[in-house]
């Protein structure tokens, strides 16, 4: 089977136009109403970001009594360092993390899923174990370690572990997907004298776009949303990330700029949302495997 036309085959049921349209309308209605329900809290957040400050917690209506973009202006420069700097930092950390995770985790996953070596099961079990220990208790030993390496107050503790595949979640995820790819592919390639590297690079990776895109999306968003790592390892405000900046808006014991918090919360969603929109197209690439399987 050639993969050209197969790529265009989209899941459609048997052609029965009238009934199909009704089903389709029903599905859209269901999806849309579900979306509204899901999104109400976010709409509230959006409305709150345009509200006058002293109305945020006291007003019951979702529509603000007056619209103002003050909170955005105030929030953007509200801290001593502008949010532009925080955005740049977040982009650097998240971008590098995506590169690191996709490369290092796919390599480890390839080893676990496709290659045979001694103690493989042992290492795999170890990898899973790292997922199970709550980070709160390894925090301090890890801090001491990074301090000895002289990495505190730099991005290194946040980025280097990604290049060393420290997040077992993504290895495990990729292992599950790689194991779903037909074994005959590697066997045939091996017969032709392909090295493991070529099999990884030329066969496995191109066929794994959905899972690689998934890993990229999750890494970017989770790194972006993470505040505990940056909180512990970054001290100077000029190296803060967006999330850390957001958290300094509110202090539960004193004066806080809630309007600024909401406005910046809304803005902080924009890059991760765009990243998601862009990369989710790759999720569809999975159809390309259609023609090749079996």
């Amino acid at each position: 089977m050639s993969d050209g036309p197969a790529k265009l085959t989209v899941v459609t049921g048997a052609p029965a136009p009238g009934r199909k349209r009704l089903t389709s309308i029903l599905i859209h209605v269901a999806l849309l109403s579900a979306s509204v329900l899901m999104l109400y809290p976010l709409l509230w957040l959006l409305a709150a970001s345009f509200r006058p400050e002293n109305e945020i917690f006291t007003s019951a209506s979702i529509i603000p009594s007056a619209w103002s973009i003050d909170a955005y202006i105030r929030g953007w420069n509200g801290l001593r360092t502008s949010f532009a700097t925080f955005y740049l930092n977040s982009f650097i950390i998240s971008g590098l993390s995506v590169a690191g995770n996709v490369i290092a985790c796919s390599m480890a996953a390839f080893a676990f899923a496709r290659l045979n070596f001694r103690f493989k099961n042992f290492w795999f079990a170890m990898m899973l174990m790292t997922l199970m220990l709550p980070y709160q208790v390894t925090l301090i030993p890890q801090y001491v370690l990074f301090r000895q390496l002289g990495w505190v107050n730099t991005f290194l503790p946040l980025v280097v572990p990604k290049f060393l595949a420290a997040d077992g979640f993504f290895i495990f995820l990729m292992v599950q997907f790689f194991r779903g790819l037909p074994k005959e592919l590697d066997e045939a390639a091996q017969m032709d004298g392909c090295s493991p590297w070529r099999i990884y690079w030329k066969i496995i990776l191109p066929l794994s776009m959905p899972v690689l895109a998934t890993a990229a999306i999750f890494t970017f968003i989770w790194t972006w949303d993470d505040f505990f790592g940056p909180l512990i390892y970054l001290s100077e405000m000029k190296s803060y990330t967006v999330m850390l900046g957001l958290r300094t808006f509110t202090d539960s014991t004193g004066e806080s700029d809630y309007g600024g918090l909401f406005a910046m919360s809304v803005l902080s969603l924009v890059p991760i949302f765009l990243f998601f929109l862009f990369f989710q197209r790759l999720l569809i690439e999975g159809i390309a495997t259609t023609g090749m399987k079996r």
Binding site: L139, F227, L231, D251
Partner: peptide, 17 residues
């Protein structure tokens, strides 16, 4: 830092010398 974030960070820094 905000109050809730302040104490874990201070404890970590102190423990880490």
């Amino acid at each position: 830092l905000a109050w809730n974030d302040y104490w874990p960070k201070l404890a970590t820094q102190t423990a880490g010398g």
